[in-house]
């Protein structure tokens, strides 16, 4: 068993491209999908993120703000999964109803495990 972070990215607010009815249907589908993951014991956590925020660049104590552009591709939320392998995590990601209803991308990365202290 290994843990994975899935970062979901869409262009702008991912729900905005949908009508209120479509939004409702989408949320329902996501609920069923997440319910299945909970039941299977695969989900450690999943949270959506607010659309506003900040981007910060820093180098040796010198910071530069932004640009934060919420109409460009932004992280809209994350899933924290437990899976047997990267392949399984990818399959779980592909089953996310977000891909049925809109253009989205996901980054799936294993969480580094502690292997003693140097």
């Amino acid at each position: 068993m290994q843990e994975f972070m899935l970062f979901i990215k869409t262009k702008g607010d991912h729900l905005e491209s949908l009508s209120p009815e479509q939004q409702q249907a989408h949320i329902q589908k996501v609920g069923v999908y997440i319910g299945g993951l909970i039941q299977a014991g695969k989900l450690k956590g999943a949270q959506p993120l607010e659309m506003e925020g900040a981007v910060l660049h820093g180098n040796k104590g010198v910071f530069k703000d932004g640009p934060f552009n919420e109409s460009k591709e932004v992280i809209v939320g994350y899933f924290h999964l437990v899976a047997d392998s990267l392949e399984e995590a990818v399959e779980i990601a592909k089953a996310n109803p977000i891909f049925e209803d809109m253009d989205a991308s996901m980054e799936i990365r294993p969480i580094k495990q502690v292997e003693g202290i140097n």
């Binding site: 069923v32 997440i34 319910g35 909970i38 039941q39 956590g45 999943a46 949270q47 959506p48």
Partner: peptide, 19 residues
């Protein structure tokens, strides 16, 4: 409890309650 964590997320609260 992990459940309490799930109940604090907009995405997982309702599915967790049903579960």
């Amino acid at each position: 409890s992990e459940i309490a964590n799930h109940l604090q997320s907009q995405w997982t609260a309702a599915p967790m309650l049903d579960h």
